[in-house]
Amino acid sequence: MSLGGTFAAIPCESLAAQALPLTFADAADLSLQAPVVAHVRIARASRLKPAEAIGVGPGRTRYYVEADVVSLIRGAQGLPARISYLADMANDAAGRAVKLRKKDEFLIFADRQGTTGSEVRLVATDAQVPYTAAGADRVRAILREATARDAAPRIAGIGRAFHVPGSLPGESETQIFLMAADGRPVSLNVLRRPGETPRWAVSLSEIVDESATAPRPDTLLWYRLACSLPQSLPPQSLAEADPATAPAIQADYQLIKMSLGPCTRSRPAR
């Protein structure tokens, strides 16, 4: 058996009740990390002896799992009808190893192992989650967005920020430049006009589109911003701005952060 490393699954007794539901950020974290995403059905699972399960954490048991692929959600090279992988599963409340039942269904987030393609490796210790149709649809939607030609890029940092007061009292515009991992120009723009609610938008080009808006929640662009932007602007972002405008820039940045809302996760980000 050539599979190695530590993997994890969720206990299968009272599986739905015990598993924390994946938030949108959880699903995006796993989906974007995994070259292979599949809906699988357990065919058989064998518990390994302690001597064969080196590195398993306390309170967990390692299994060698064979599963039938119900559907392949992501995987450019395809998968055989049956795959195998290792899963480290938490023991029950009494410390006993749980049973991984035949025909239990999961979504797995994995990478290919070996040369046959039938062996995969989960990308994280919790990268096997109980299957639901809604969960699978969410993952498909994330991957569709991620593979689109104009997909929102990963945010690598924050660049310069500037603030320009308008000609009327209470009128202003703030522009905050972001650093994208692919080098694409990205900026956040906040427009304030007297008597109107402040409006902000994100631009993914050098030219600010007048029709641009804030991203919808639970979209890839929302995830890239909400889960990447720090709580406050770093000092270097204000280095080239007029010091008198720094409070206004920080206030507009906080407006953006509040509008985006928290990046809620039920699992640690990796």
Rank of each mutant, 00 (worst) to 15 (best):
T23W: 07
T23N: 06
F24Q: 01
A25F: 13
A27I: 04
A27F: 03
A28W: 02
A28S: 09
A28E: 13
D29Y: 03
D29F: 02
L30F: 15
L30G: 05
S31R: 05
S31W: 09
L32I: 01
Q33I: 11
Q33Y: 00
A34Q: 11
A34F: 08
P35W: 14
V37Y: 13
A38G: 01
A38R: 07
V40D: 02
V40T: 06
A43I: 07
R44I: 10
R44E: 12
A45Q: 12
S46W: 06
S46D: 11
S46L: 14
R47K: 12
K49G: 01
K49Q: 13
P50F: 06
P50W: 11
A51Y: 10
E52M: 13
A53K: 00
I54H: 04
G55E: 05
G57L: 14
G57H: 12
P58N: 09
G59T: 03
G59C: 05
G59M: 03
R60Q: 09
T61N: 08
T61A: 10
T61C: 07
R62N: 02
R62I: 00
Y64T: 01
Y64Q: 15
Y64F: 10
V65M: 04
V65W: 01
E66D: 08
D68G: 11
D68Y: 00
V69N: 04
V70Y: 06
